[in-house]
């Protein structure tokens, strides 16, 4: 967060304005196909912000999955459903007013919470979690096993000062891969099963029933 901060700012604002503008066009465009294309543009802008946050792997995933696969899937579905002309009608003035009010209230509430929460004080919450866990389990879980070389990352207290972790600029893909094959390997395998089940379910649902 030290060097080339002005450039970071410029890239962030360009990406943020592009993402918000494209998202507004997604819900405002009259043509559903245009909505899908603007959705791809919005995903691309958000992927640029991921690069800015040093989440390069997530940016690649965003481009490959969202811009590549999801947008193509949406466009294929729109073409198969044949709702291109005038498909993006609003659901009536009542729903438009309700949606606008709900969206405004939600965004105001989230922005209020974001500004009024001390996000740097996460260690206090983690420490109180640790105390609760220790009280529940008889102070067993909060003691790392001696000689265990694996760092317990979740409850590792951030003893180092803030300036030793100077911000968002570092590589992250290697850590991500190590966590996925080491600590989160069970969740990783289960999520692949979920994807397989969803794939088979979609095939079964969308199959044309042959007249026999």
């Amino acid at each position: 967060m030290t060097e080339s901060s002005a450039l970071v700012d410029v890239i962030f604002w360009v990406g943020a304005i592009a993402a918000i503008g494209a998202s507004v066009m997604v819900v405002a465009a009259r043509d559903v196909l245009k909505s899908a294309v603007f959705l791809a543009a919005s995903f691309l802008a958000v992927g640029g912000i991921y690069v800015l946050l040093r989440a390069e792997f997530l940016a690649a995933v965003q481009v490959l999955i969202y811009v590549g696969a999801v947008s193509i899937l949406i466009i294929f579905t729109i073409m198969m459903v044949r709702q291109i002309a005038g498909g993006n009608r609003s659901a009536g003035p009542f729903y438009v007013v309700t949606g606008a009010i709900a969206a405004t209230l939600v965004s105001l509430a989230v922005i209020y919470a974001a500004y009024n929460t001390d996000w740097s004080d996460l260690d206090a919450a983690a420490a109180s979690d640790q105390r609760v866990e220790a009280a529940l389990t008889g102070s067993y879980a909060s003691q790392p096993a001696p000689g265990n070389p694996k760092v317990d990352i979740i409850v590792a207290p951030a003893t180092a000062a803030a300036n030793s972790h100077p911000g968002v600029f570092e590589r992250s893909t290697g850590n991500l891969g190590q966590l996925f094959i080491r600590d989160y390997v069970l969740a990783f395998e289960i999520i692949s099963l979920v994807l397989l089940a969803a794939l088979i379910g979609a095939l079964v649902l969308a199959r044309e029933r042959r007249p026999t």
């Binding site: 819900v27 609003s90 438009v96 949606g99």
Partner: peptide
């Protein structure tokens, strides 16, 4: 959220 609530398709 607005798109979910206000769009028809």
């Amino acid at each position: 959220l607005y798109g979910v609530l206000a769009r028809r398709s």
